[in-house]
Design a protein around this nucleic acid. Structure first.
Lengths: 139, 139
DNA sequence: CTTTGTGCAAATTCTTTGCACCAAA
DNA sequence: TTTGGTGCAAAGAATTTGCACAAAG
């Protein structure tokens, strides 16, 4: 089975009807774990799909987020960023280069949903920011 | 000493030159721990300060954030929200009513900056979202 | 005076909406 | 067919910028 069909199946797990565009966006997110913005996804897919519109990227990502297939990160106030890795992990954003890094190795306790009286928690987001090692070494 | 002068002193601690507008914004934030948006701050102050402009609110809050006097929350993707409480605490946003609650009672361990090789962390943001008890009880 | 802050209007950026056309079942 | 998806253009909302005037030291 080729990659395209694998992604079809993957989308169906989340109750998302596959289309050429949706499959391309998910394929991109699974292959590029860089927490891309809408703009970056569009710029990357557009050359191979000349009729692709930014509206479709918006529609597609909103659908993915609604269905729980993708996380929309709030870490970057300027632009929404998307992450197809929905397992428990935190993020670090460099205030100098803007890159967003995954942090998988943190204590899993961090992601436990605290018991809050009467509140139903359905998502947890843990974000750090500062200066990454690459940027620090430039000085 | 009146409240106005207290806030003057408070601003100076952060190396912020006080002005009537800046003092009013900080006074508002200290008195309304509701994580207001720019719009809400403007709407609230504008009647008593008819010449106040939204640009000044933007300028002021950007300055406060740069100086570390106020936190800009990313929890609400739609609008920036501001918090004059800079002590360690998390937030919960209700997806139904949009209200942002403070969570002070969580384990302080959550706010420790993890040791990441070569990364300098200067801020930590922990955000939960779901349904708050008021909204839950409406059903 | 001189520097800094304010506020209007315009510009920019990001995202959503309305609607006609297209594609798949 | 009929339903749902796509994509263009326009609208809307949030934020930033340019610039002239005002305020404070």
């Amino acid at each position: 089975m080729n990659n395209y069909m694998q992604i079809h199946k993957y989308l169906k797990q989340f109750d998302i009807k596959p289309s050429v565009q949706r499959t391309a966006v998910m394929e991109y997110l699974l292959a590029h774990k860089t927490h891309p913005t809408i703009e970056e996804i569009y710029a990357s897919l557009s050359p191979q799909m000349p009729t692709l519109s930014k509206t479709t990227i918006y529609n597609t990502l909103n659908l993915f987020v609604d269905k729980g297939a993708v996380l929309q990160l709030a870490i970057d106030e300027k632009n929404a960023r998307y992450d197809a890795d929905i397992s428990d992990h935190a993020h670090f954003m460099c205030n100098s280069c803007g890159k967003v890094y995954d942090l998988f190795s943190l204590n899993k306790e961090l992601f436990k949903k605290p018991a809050l009286e009467g509140f139903d928690i359905n998502s947890v987001e843990i974000s750090y920011s500062g200066i990454c090692s690459s940027c620090k070494n430039l000085n």
